[in-house]
Every structure is written in structure tokens, then in C-alpha cells.
Design a protein around this nucleic acid. Structure first.
Length: 199
DNA sequence: GATTGGATCGCCT
DNA sequence: GGCGATCCAATCG
């Protein structure tokens, strides 16, 4: 039933201080956990996207540092949260190095921990509807946008792994919902997962 | 100071 | 598969 959290290892700075697309792929199969006021929520990451800073027309940081995107201009391993369409929040983690304002967007996780809390937050009971989209997973986990800029290394939002993850295949596609750089292959998901946002 | 459009979701047909 | 919700940041004047 619930995962034994003590057997997990938290990902550190050296994991995030790497090529962003590589980090996005390596995060698949890892655990995203949020230690919130009502308990721990989270699950296994099944879908991510990479956003490549100055070289990427679809990345928020392409036009330079602003109050909104300044977290990306700091070191790797920080949580970047922003409001989209005036309604939903999206969760990212910064990557690469201080010179490169890049990040990975979390688009879907397989719900595993704190299921009852997540069902309550989402007002849904079907597992597939809990975390199958970037706005959905933030709502399900109960992540507060004031955690923007917090540390993914030792803050309440963290990334973990265990040695028991089964092998899986990674599917690479174009990113979703963007109007620029539509054809760049920077979306990654676990082949066959029922919990991704869309095929 | 006004305008515009967005890394989405859920409900409608 | 189409569209409205809803609001902030960025851009332009």
C-alpha cells in the first residue's frame, strides 16, 4: 500500500546541475513528494517537459529576467511556480547552471501517496483524474504558489528515488500548449503509463 | 495606462 | 473537438 518513505534517497544538487533535457528524462520514474500541512502527497513522475532558456522561444526566460521568472536565473535545484491562464499553477524545477535560466515542467505523476488528501483537493475519486496535467497535479498535491523559489534539495517539495523502479521505455514528443518552437522534441513520458496528461 | 495573450482545465455538443 | 473562465506579466504608447 503506502510506500516506505524511509527507503528512499533524495536527489541532490548534482542531479539538477546537468543538461536540462537529460534531467527531464531522468526524472521519469522518480518520486515527487510534497510535505504539506495536511500530510505527505505525491507519486511517481510519468511526464515532463524541458524548457531551454535563452535558446528556447517557448521558455519564459527567453526575453530576460523579470520578477515572474527570476527563479530560473538563480542556481539549479529551485522550485519555480507560476500562474497560467489566470487560473492554474504549474510546477517546475530549475536545472543546468547559473548562466542558463532553464527548467523542467512537471506535467503528470502517478498518484501514490496521500491519496485521500489529493482526492479531496481535486474533488475527484478516479486516480487518472488526480494528477494528469500540470495544473491538476499542483492542485492535487496542495502545493502553495508561495513555495516559488524554495529549495528542491531540502525544502518541502522534493524528488526521490529507490532501487526498485522497474525498467520502462521513454517516449519523446513535442511540447503541449505552446505556440513557439512547436516542433522541438522536449516532452518526455513513460511509455504505456495510464497517468499521463495525453498521448 | 491600456491591451494582449498565455507551458490549462472542465464542461458543452 | 471547441470554448469560456479569469488574471497577471509583458509590451507598447
Amino acid at each position: 500500500m503506502a510506500k516506505d518513505l524511509t527507503s528512499m534517497t533524495r536527489l541532490g544538487m548534482s542531479f539538477f546541475e546537468r543538461d536540462t533535457a537529460l534531467v527531464a528524462k531522468d526524472l521519469l520514474g522518480k518520486w515527487l513528494l510534497f510535505k504539506g500541512p495536511q500530510g505527505i502527497t505525491g507519486g511517481i513522475i510519468v511526464e515532463t517537459e524541458a524548457y531551454l532558456g535563452f535558446n528556447d522561444p517557448a521558455c519564459h526566460s527567453v526575453r530576460g529576467c523579470t520578477p515572474r521568472n527570476k527563479v530560473m536565473f538563480g542556481p539549479a535545484g529551485k522550485i519555480y511556480i507560476y500562474l497560467i491562464y489566470g487560473i492554474h499553477y504549474c510546477l517546475n524545477v530549475t536545472t543546468a547552471c547559473i548562466e542558463k535560466p532553464e527548467a523542467v515542467l512537471f506535467r503528470a505523476i502517478e498518484p501514490k501517496i496521500g491519496m485521500e488528501i489529493m482526492k479531496k483537493h481535486r474533488k475527484k475519486t478516479k486516480l487518472k483524474e488526480l494528477c494528469s496535467g500540470p495544473g491538476k497535479l499542483v492542485q492535487a498535491l496542495g502545493i502553495n504558489p508561495n513555495l516559488n523559489g524554495s529549495s528542491a534539495i531540502d525544502g518541502p517539495i522534493g524528488f526521490y528515488y529507490d532501487e526498485l523502479n522497474p525498467d520502462f521505455e521513454i517516449v519523446t514528443t513535442t511540447r503541449i500548449g505552446i505556440s513557439q518552437a512547436k516542433d522541438w522534441p522536449l516532452r518526455f513520458y513513460i511509455k504505456g503509463s495510464k497517468f499521463i496528461s495525453r498521448p
